[in-house]
Protein backbone atom coordinates (compact mmCIF):
# COMPACT_ATOMS: atom_id res chain seq x y z
CA UNK A 1 0.00 0.00 0.00
CA UNK A 2 1.41 3.40 -0.97
CA UNK A 3 1.07 6.46 1.28
CA UNK A 4 -1.62 7.81 -1.08
CA UNK A 5 -3.62 4.55 -0.91
CA UNK A 6 -3.44 4.84 2.86
CA UNK A 7 -4.65 8.44 2.80
CA UNK A 8 -7.51 7.58 0.44
CA UNK A 9 -8.53 4.77 2.77
CA UNK A 10 -8.55 6.88 5.93
CA UNK A 11 -10.13 9.88 4.18
CA UNK A 12 -12.73 7.60 2.61
CA UNK A 13 -14.34 4.45 4.02
CA UNK A 14 -12.55 4.42 7.39
CA UNK A 15 -13.64 7.96 8.14
CA UNK A 16 -17.23 7.13 7.23
CA UNK A 17 -17.21 4.08 9.49
CA UNK A 18 -15.61 5.94 12.39
CA UNK A 19 -18.02 8.87 12.10
CA UNK A 20 -21.02 6.52 11.96
CA UNK A 21 -19.88 4.62 15.06
CA UNK A 22 -19.19 7.89 16.87
CA UNK A 23 -22.60 9.41 16.20
CA UNK A 24 -24.36 6.10 16.76
CA UNK A 25 -22.59 5.50 20.06
CA UNK A 26 -22.96 9.00 21.40
CA UNK A 27 -26.69 9.14 20.68
CA UNK A 28 -27.20 5.62 21.99
CA UNK A 29 -25.62 6.49 25.30
CA UNK A 30 -27.23 9.90 25.60
CA UNK A 31 -30.70 8.52 24.94
CA UNK A 32 -30.10 5.70 27.40
CA UNK A 33 -29.26 8.24 30.06
CA UNK A 34 -31.97 10.77 29.23
CA UNK A 35 -34.87 8.36 29.22
CA UNK A 36 -33.59 6.46 32.21
CA UNK A 37 -36.39 5.78 34.67
CA UNK A 38 -36.01 7.98 37.69
CA UNK A 39 -37.88 7.68 40.90
CA UNK A 40 -40.48 10.40 41.22
CA UNK A 41 -39.52 12.95 43.79
CA UNK A 42 -42.57 13.26 45.98
CA UNK A 43 -41.21 15.97 48.21
CA UNK A 44 -42.58 19.46 47.89
CA UNK A 45 -40.40 21.56 45.53
CA UNK A 46 -38.73 24.53 47.17
CA UNK A 47 -37.40 25.93 43.92
CA UNK A 48 -37.31 25.53 40.16
CA UNK A 49 -35.29 22.75 38.55
CA UNK A 50 -34.64 24.07 35.05
CA UNK A 51 -33.03 27.41 35.81
CA UNK A 52 -30.92 26.01 38.63
CA UNK A 53 -29.81 23.09 36.45
CA UNK A 54 -28.90 25.31 33.52
CA UNK A 55 -27.00 27.72 35.77
CA UNK A 56 -24.93 24.89 37.18
CA UNK A 57 -23.84 23.81 33.70
CA UNK A 58 -22.10 27.14 33.29
CA UNK A 59 -21.12 27.82 36.86
CA UNK A 60 -18.93 24.75 37.00
CA UNK A 61 -16.72 25.94 34.15
CA UNK A 62 -15.18 28.14 36.83
CA UNK A 63 -12.30 26.47 38.70
CA UNK A 64 -13.24 25.31 42.14
CA UNK A 65 -11.18 27.17 44.73
CA UNK A 66 -10.95 24.25 47.12
CA UNK A 67 -9.88 21.84 44.41
CA UNK A 68 -7.38 24.34 43.12
CA UNK A 69 -5.79 24.62 46.55
CA UNK A 70 -5.92 20.92 47.28
CA UNK A 71 -4.48 19.67 43.97
CA UNK A 72 -3.33 22.60 41.86
CA UNK A 73 -1.21 20.67 39.34
CA UNK A 74 -3.87 18.41 37.76
CA UNK A 75 -6.49 21.16 37.99
CA UNK A 76 -4.42 23.75 36.16
CA UNK A 77 -3.02 21.25 33.64
CA UNK A 78 -6.55 19.95 33.09
CA UNK A 79 -7.84 23.41 32.31
CA UNK A 80 -4.92 24.13 29.98
CA UNK A 81 -5.41 20.84 28.17
CA UNK A 82 -9.16 21.20 27.70
CA UNK A 83 -8.94 24.79 26.52
CA UNK A 84 -6.00 24.07 24.23
CA UNK A 85 -7.61 21.00 22.74
CA UNK A 86 -10.76 22.91 21.85
CA UNK A 87 -8.78 25.78 20.36
CA UNK A 88 -6.89 23.32 18.12
CA UNK A 89 -10.04 21.42 17.26
CA UNK A 90 -12.31 24.37 16.57
CA UNK A 91 -10.06 27.19 15.38
CA UNK A 92 -7.56 25.51 13.02
CA UNK A 93 -8.81 26.46 9.57
CA UNK A 94 -8.63 22.99 7.96
CA UNK A 95 -10.81 21.74 10.86
CA UNK A 96 -13.28 24.55 10.31
CA UNK A 97 -13.48 23.52 6.67
CA UNK A 98 -14.29 19.95 7.73
CA UNK A 99 -17.03 21.11 10.12
CA UNK A 100 -18.37 23.47 7.48
CA UNK A 101 -18.63 20.66 4.94
CA UNK A 102 -20.36 18.34 7.41
CA UNK A 103 -22.67 20.74 9.25
CA UNK A 104 -22.80 23.83 7.06
CA UNK A 105 -21.68 26.17 9.87
CA UNK A 106 -18.50 28.18 9.86
CA UNK A 107 -16.64 30.72 11.96
CA UNK A 108 -13.36 32.62 11.74
CA UNK A 109 -10.18 30.63 12.42
CA UNK A 110 -6.93 31.55 14.12
CA UNK A 111 -3.59 32.11 12.34
CA UNK A 112 -1.64 28.88 12.13
CA UNK A 113 1.27 29.98 14.29
CA UNK A 114 -1.14 30.62 17.19
CA UNK A 115 -2.74 27.19 16.82
CA UNK A 116 0.78 25.81 16.57
CA UNK A 117 1.84 27.30 19.90
CA UNK A 118 -1.43 26.19 21.54
CA UNK A 119 -0.91 22.64 20.24
CA UNK A 120 2.55 22.50 21.81
CA UNK A 121 1.27 23.79 25.15
CA UNK A 122 -1.62 21.32 25.04
CA UNK A 123 0.69 18.40 24.36
CA UNK A 124 2.89 19.56 27.21
CA UNK A 125 -0.13 19.65 29.54
CA UNK A 126 -1.07 16.11 28.47
CA UNK A 127 2.41 14.82 29.19
CA UNK A 128 2.21 16.54 32.59
CA UNK A 129 -1.15 14.93 33.34
CA UNK A 130 0.19 11.53 32.35
CA UNK A 131 3.25 11.89 34.59
CA UNK A 132 1.15 13.19 37.46
CA UNK A 133 -1.13 10.19 37.18
CA UNK A 134 1.88 7.88 37.23
CA UNK A 135 3.63 9.53 40.17
CA UNK A 136 0.82 10.53 42.50
CA UNK A 137 0.25 7.44 44.69
CA UNK A 138 -3.47 8.04 45.27
CA UNK A 139 -4.24 8.77 41.62
CA UNK A 140 -2.14 5.86 40.53
CA UNK A 141 -4.10 3.56 42.81
CA UNK A 142 -7.35 4.82 41.34
CA UNK A 143 -6.26 4.68 37.69
CA UNK A 144 -7.24 1.93 35.32
CA UNK A 145 -5.69 1.01 31.99
CA UNK A 146 -8.33 3.12 30.26
CA UNK A 147 -7.17 6.31 31.97
CA UNK A 148 -3.68 5.96 30.56
CA UNK A 149 -4.90 4.70 27.21
CA UNK A 150 -7.19 7.69 26.66
CA UNK A 151 -4.40 10.13 27.46
CA UNK A 152 -2.24 8.40 24.85
CA UNK A 153 -4.96 8.41 22.17
CA UNK A 154 -5.74 12.10 22.70
CA UNK A 155 -2.03 12.89 22.68
CA UNK A 156 -1.65 11.00 19.40
CA UNK A 157 -4.30 13.10 17.66
CA UNK A 158 -2.43 16.26 18.65
CA UNK A 159 1.03 14.87 17.92
CA UNK A 160 0.13 13.49 14.50
CA UNK A 161 -1.61 16.77 13.65
CA UNK A 162 1.51 18.66 14.64
CA UNK A 163 3.68 16.27 12.62
CA UNK A 164 1.45 16.61 9.56
CA UNK A 165 1.34 20.40 9.79
CA UNK A 166 5.11 20.68 10.01
CA UNK A 167 5.78 17.98 7.39
CA UNK A 168 7.97 16.18 9.93
CA UNK A 169 7.09 12.83 8.34
CA UNK A 170 7.39 12.64 4.57
CA UNK A 171 5.55 12.08 2.31
CA UNK A 172 2.76 14.28 3.55
CA UNK A 173 -0.08 11.87 2.58
CA UNK A 174 1.37 9.43 5.15
CA UNK A 175 1.53 12.10 7.86
CA UNK A 176 -2.00 13.36 7.17
CA UNK A 177 -3.23 9.76 6.97
CA UNK A 178 -1.74 8.98 10.40
CA UNK A 179 -3.43 12.05 11.84
CA UNK A 180 -6.80 11.02 10.40
CA UNK A 181 -6.31 7.44 11.60
CA UNK A 182 -5.61 8.58 15.17
CA UNK A 183 -8.69 10.80 15.05
CA UNK A 184 -10.74 7.87 13.76
CA UNK A 185 -9.50 5.75 16.67
CA UNK A 186 -10.59 8.53 19.02
CA UNK A 187 -14.03 8.72 17.37
CA UNK A 188 -14.57 4.97 17.58
CA UNK A 189 -13.65 4.57 21.26
CA UNK A 190 -15.23 7.87 22.27
CA UNK A 191 -18.78 6.74 23.08
CA UNK A 192 -17.66 3.63 24.94
CA UNK A 193 -15.02 5.15 27.21
CA UNK A 194 -14.67 7.99 29.70
CA UNK A 195 -14.27 10.34 26.74
CA UNK A 196 -18.06 10.35 26.74
CA UNK A 197 -17.81 12.88 29.59
CA UNK A 198 -17.49 15.50 26.84
CA UNK A 199 -21.27 15.27 26.62
CA UNK A 200 -22.34 13.64 29.86
CA UNK A 201 -20.58 16.25 31.96
CA UNK A 202 -23.33 18.68 30.95
CA UNK A 203 -26.07 16.18 31.81
CA UNK A 204 -24.43 15.49 35.14
CA UNK A 205 -24.12 19.18 35.97
CA UNK A 206 -27.70 19.78 34.97
CA UNK A 207 -29.05 16.94 37.12
CA UNK A 208 -26.96 18.08 40.05
CA UNK A 209 -28.09 21.65 39.68
CA UNK A 210 -31.71 20.70 39.12
CA UNK A 211 -31.82 18.47 42.20
CA UNK A 212 -30.25 21.16 44.34
CA UNK A 213 -32.61 23.73 42.84
CA UNK A 214 -35.62 21.67 43.76
CA UNK A 215 -34.38 21.51 47.29
CA UNK A 216 -33.76 25.21 47.30
CA UNK A 217 -30.02 24.99 47.87
CA UNK A 218 -27.06 26.07 45.76
CA UNK A 219 -25.30 23.27 43.94
Amino acid sequence: MTPMDFLQLVRGPLFDIALTIFIFGVLLRLFEIIILDRKRDLSEARGGEFIAGSKTIFRRFKPDREKLQHSPVPTILGYIFHLGFFICLLFFIPHIELIHSALGVSWPGLPNFLVDVVALITMGALVGLFLYRLTNPLLRFLSSFQDYFLLVVVFLTLATGYIAFHHIIEPYPLALGLHLLSVELLLVIFPFTKLMHTFTVFLGRYYNGAMAGRRGVQS
Binding site: Q8, L19, L27, E32
Partner: peptide, 22 residues
Protein backbone atom coordinates in the same frame (compact mmCIF):
# COMPACT_ATOMS: atom_id res chain seq x y z
CA UNK B 1 -9.26 18.17 5.38
CA UNK B 2 -12.74 17.23 4.18
CA UNK B 3 -13.34 13.48 3.94
CA UNK B 4 -13.70 12.00 0.49
CA UNK B 5 -17.31 10.92 0.87
CA UNK B 6 -20.21 13.14 1.88
CA UNK B 7 -20.49 12.77 5.67
CA UNK B 8 -24.28 13.19 5.44
CA UNK B 9 -24.78 9.43 5.02
CA UNK B 10 -22.63 8.61 8.03
CA UNK B 11 -24.35 11.26 10.13
CA UNK B 12 -27.79 10.09 8.99
CA UNK B 13 -27.16 6.44 9.76
CA UNK B 14 -25.52 7.30 13.08
CA UNK B 15 -28.34 9.60 14.19
CA UNK B 16 -31.17 7.28 13.18
CA UNK B 17 -29.60 4.07 14.47
CA UNK B 18 -28.17 5.64 17.63
CA UNK B 19 -31.44 7.34 18.56
CA UNK B 20 -33.53 4.30 17.69
CA UNK B 21 -31.44 1.79 19.59
CA UNK B 22 -30.92 4.22 22.47
Amino acid sequence: SIPINDPAAAIGIGVVAGAAIG
